[in-house]
Structures are given as C-alpha cells and as structure tokens.
C-alpha cells in the first residue's frame, strides 16, 4: 500500500498515523468519561440549583459540608452500608454454595449452569418490576406470605401484623433479596472457575491425611477460594453502594425513607430538588467511599500474598 502514497508524505504520516487512528476513540473517551468526571467535580464545588438558575456561583466545599451535616446523608449511608453488607455476605454464601453444587457432576449440569446466568442477564429495572409482581400488593409471593402470617397467627393465637412492602423492614430486605438474586450468578461463575482450578490431588492428599469433608472444605477449598472471595467482595461492595435502578423500580425509595440508599439520595438531590451541585457532591462521596473500601480489600489481597506483585 505504501507504493500508492506520495513519497514526501511518508515520513510525517509514519509518526502521525497511529495518533490519527486512535483519535476517534480518544475523543469519545474524553467526551463521555473524562469530561463528565471533571465537570461533575467542578459542579460539586458550585452552588448550582436549577430552581435558581441565575444564582450559580463557586462556593468551594460548601456542598460537602452541607451534606455531611445533614441527617439525610447519614441515614442514607447507614442504609447503604446495611444493604451492601447484607448483599455481599449473602451473595458470597449463596454463590459459593451453588458453585460447590454445580462443581459436582450430575445429569443436566450443563443446562443448569446455563440457566444460572439468566438473572444476571436481566436489567435492574426489569428485575425490580418482576419483584414488584411477586412482592407488591397483588403479588403472588406477597399473598403467600400474608396467608402464612395469618396461619401462624391463628395457630399460635398471636397477632403479627404483616403489611408487606409497606413495612420498612420488609421493603429494605426485599430490595436486598432482589439485588442478591440478580448478583449471585456472576459471583457463582467466578467461584466455579476458582473451584475448578483447585488440583484434585489436593483433595486426595487431604483425604489420605484424614480430613473429613467439612475439613476438606475448610482447609483446602476455602483457602484456595480466598482470592475469588475478595474479588467478589470488591465487585459486590461497589455494586451494593451504587444500587439504584432496582430500588427505583421496586420501592421508589420508600416506604418513607426506608430504602433511601445513598445512590437514591443522589438521584433525589438532582432530580427532585434540582440541586445539581449537591448531587454531584453526593456522587463524589460515593466514589470516595467505594474507593476507600476497594483499597482496603486490595491491600488485604496483597498482604496475604495471594497476588503476585
């Protein structure tokens, strides 16, 4: 092809060509990732409320100070921490249990492994709506729970009031359940891959050493999965802190502020209060929290010497 190009252009194009070819991608990355990150931080340092579009001015860390002083933020943070902690714990336990089961050979294992991925492929909003169908006022699962509570009340002569998704406790934990349901497949695949990488001779050696099946899990499987558990924990922690679409569809943040997770609070700042300065400050706080947690996890990973540095 070089033959077709005029001679005098050759040396210059040799330097410029790689740059030129990369330019579209670079522009897109700058426009859709770097610019929003930058502008969002810049806006978080401004008073920027669309209710008063004429009063946009720089006021430093004022937004952050306001947020940190508000009870709304701390309430949302605690809800998010609870949400994330429960979600990470449940995802790890359930996904590992399923992965251990799927590692065993049984008829139809391939089909089950494929089916496992379905929840993961469902978008968050759709997942939320599906759970509304199950747990909402007219939901089948909700009806079953109501009947069960009524039966228990009748049998034991007690009076438990079950209000379904109108109960803050039920709403928050249902949101966690739905979130976990959707997150398990991904974690499960990571665990399954890690389990399959454990050499079978490890188990043979452990059996000869007299380890029971529980001890083989405790002393062989679990240490071998340490790395995978940390990866899942990091991933699920970030996921938990950013959970929004599911909650938007399932509870709408309610009842009251029971499911006001921190991402919901950010949304509320921006689109209910139209306070874009405050909302951007919220985003940065979420980023800061998840980054801190990620750093802790990663340091844990390196300290245990499981990552070859």
């Amino acid at each position: 092809m070089t033959v077709l190009r005029p001679f005098h252009l050759m040396s210059r194009t040799r330097d410029l060509l790689p740059l030129l070819l990369n330019l579209p991608a670079v522009i897109l990355l700058l426009a859709f990732i770097a610019y929003p990150i930058g502008i969002s931080f810049w806006m978080s340092l401004h008073r920027y409320n669309l209710r008063r579009p004429d009063q946009v001015y720089f006021h430093g860390l004022e937004n952050y100070a306001t947020i940190l002083a508000s009870s709304e933020f701390w309430n949302a943070l605690w809800i998010s921490l609870y949400f994330t902690f429960m979600a990470v714990l449940l995802v790890i336990v359930i996904a590992m249990a399923i992965a251990l089961l799927l590692h065993e050979s049984f008829r139809g294992r391939g089909v089950v492994r494929a089916l496992l991925l379905i929840p993961w492929a469902i978008p968050g909003v759709v997942n939320g709506l599906m759970w509304v169908g199950l747990l909402g006022d007219y939901g089948a699962f909700n009806a079953m729970l109501e009947d069960s509570v009524a039966a228990v009340n009748y049998l034991f002569g007690i009076n438990i009031v079950y209000t379904g998704m109108a109960s803050p406790f039920v709403a928050l934990n249902a949101a966690i359940g739905a979130h976990v349901w959707r997150s398990v497949p991904f974690a499960c695949i990571i665990f399954l891959a890690a389990i399959q990488a454990i050499p079978t001779e490890q188990y043979r050696a452990a059996r000869v050493d007299g380890a029971t099946s529980w001890n083989r899990f405790r002393f062989i499987t679990l240490p071998w999965l340490y790395h995978a558990v940390l990866v899942v924990a990091i991933f699920e922690t970030m996921n938990g802190f950013r959970a929004f679409d599911l909650i938007y569809a399932l509870t709408g943040g309610g009842p009251g502020d029971a499911t006001h997770v921190i991402a919901w609070q950010t949304y509320k700042e921006a689109f209910a209060r139209l306070d874009f300065g405050g909302a951007n400050a919220y985003s940065y706080l979420i980023t800061l929290i998840t980054m801190t947690l990620a750093i802790i996890y990663i340091r844990l990973l390196y300290r245990r010497g499981l990552v070859q540095g």
Partner: peptide, 19 residues
C-alpha cells in the same frame, strides 16, 4: 482412605500452598 493406615506421596507433591 482417611480410615486406612496409609500415607501417600504424589507426583506433584500436593503440598497445601497456603500453609
């Protein structure tokens, strides 16, 4: 195997890497 009076050495040694 855990209740037979045996010990075994494997080709790959099968040492427990985390211990």
């Amino acid at each position: 195997p855990e209740r037979r009076d045996i010990a075994m050495v494997f080709q790959t040694y099968a040492l427990y890497p985390h211990m």
